[in-house]
Computed example of a mutant assay.
Amino acid sequence: MLAGLLLLLAACSGTDGESGGEAQGGQAGEQVNIGISQLVEHPSLDQAREGFVAALEDAGYKEGENLAIDYQNAQGDVNNNMTIAQKLVNDDNDLILGIATSSVQAITQTTQDIPVLFTAITDPVKAGLVESMENPGGNVTGTSDTHPDAIKNTIASIKEFFPEAKTVGIVYNSGEENAVVNVESAKKAIEENGLTSVEATVSSSSEVKQATESLVGRMDVLYVPKDNTVVSALESVLTVANEQKIPAFVGEGDSVERGGFASYGLNYHDLGYSTGEMAVEVLKGKAPSEISVGIPENLELMVNKQTAELLGVQFTEEQQKKITFVE
């Protein structure tokens, strides 16, 4: 009887070992459940989410096989964030991804136990998500979409392309923390470049067009920061700007592709992919506190060719060498 029992225990141990190896390698095995909370749908955030999922798939976590994703969208209403966070926590997900600052804040207020990753966050330290970029602490880490030179370079390019410009209009949601951080940085860069700023604030996407119209006649160029409320209604902003032949400098490469004039931008799919690679590390046993917050590695000056033609902008040979034109 004793010999039989020992053989049975050895067999069970061998089976567990094989199962654990398969799960760590991302092969068919234990089911992995991941919750995703996204504040609003717009191209930058959507691409970040798609990049995140792509990294998981490349590591062997296949949706519909050994991976289940519960994607929830707050539809731009921050009041929905907490309800979503509570659902994802109560469903005992193995990991939760938050996309946009307020979505992640709701998750971190709801759980200190489940690993939490974030992406497309302007300032995770100021938002209270991590202790520092190098040493996040707790159960949270992820990627910031703010390259230290992005806003500074974008504002400086205003003087390069429109040397006669004096006033920069800014439309943003004063209740969106990441937008406020972006605007503070932009205003500093505006002042450093000898420009002045005028602002119009909104609380919802339905107010964006009217706010932009209120700046007509008071601005030479427009700056649209990384603001989820405004960017989700970017077409209404650009309608006003293009009708009035006002150049719209934007905070994201995706917004250039949608018709903004120019930006020093980054690839949000790549940003999300980096976050997905972090998720793989966590699923394999690494604590979020051991993974430093990532930032974009590369910036490129992106200009929308059609918008430039609409505005009648001519580029020198030197300028063309450093511009990535999009249509």
Rank of each mutant, 00 (worst) to 15 (best):
L266P: 00
L95M: 08
I99L: 11
S274R: 08
A59I: 09
G142M: 03
S232K: 02
R49Y: 05
M1L: 12
N242E: 13
E213T: 06
V198D: 08
D70T: 15
D16L: 14
T119Q: 07
Y71D: 06
Q112R: 10
Q112N: 14
L9V: 12
T83F: 11
A279R: 00
V202T: 02
I36A: 05
D77G: 05
G276L: 01
G259D: 00
Y71V: 08
V130D: 01
D227K: 03
R49M: 08
G169D: 01
A74Y: 02
E300T: 14
A120T: 01
T15D: 13
G20S: 14
K245F: 11
N173S: 05
E57P: 08
A28V: 13
S185P: 03
D113H: 06
P163E: 09
N81F: 04
H269F: 15
G251M: 01
E191I: 04
G29Y: 08
Q306A: 15
C12V: 15
Q105W: 04
A3D: 14
T316K: 07
N93W: 01
E252F: 04
N33S: 15
Y268H: 12
S236A: 12
T316V: 07
S185W: 04
Q31E: 15
T141I: 12
A156S: 13
Q27F: 13
K152Q: 12
A287L: 10
L301Y: 11
H42R: 11
E41R: 13
V40M: 06
L6F: 09
A241M: 10
E176R: 00
E199A: 01
L39Q: 11
E277M: 03
V231D: 03
V240K: 04
S132Y: 10
V104D: 02
Q306P: 10
Q306S: 15
S103K: 05
L39R: 07
T239A: 14
D58R: 11
P296G: 07
A23C: 11
G20N: 14
G128Q: 09
N298D: 15
A100D: 11
A287E: 14
N153H: 09
Q314W: 08
I246V: 11
S157R: 09
S289T: 08
E235K: 14
V208S: 01
Q38A: 03
G142H: 07
S19F: 14
S206H: 07
I190T: 01
V116G: 05
L8N: 09
Q24H: 13
E300K: 14
I295V: 15
G194S: 10
T316L: 04
V125I: 15
A241N: 05
V250S: 02
L310I: 13
L129K: 06
I190K: 00
I170F: 02
A54W: 04
T154S: 08
V125D: 09
G25H: 10
N182L: 10
E41T: 15
A120M: 07
D145T: 02
Q86T: 13
I155T: 06
A55F: 07
A10G: 13
L271I: 04
V198T: 12
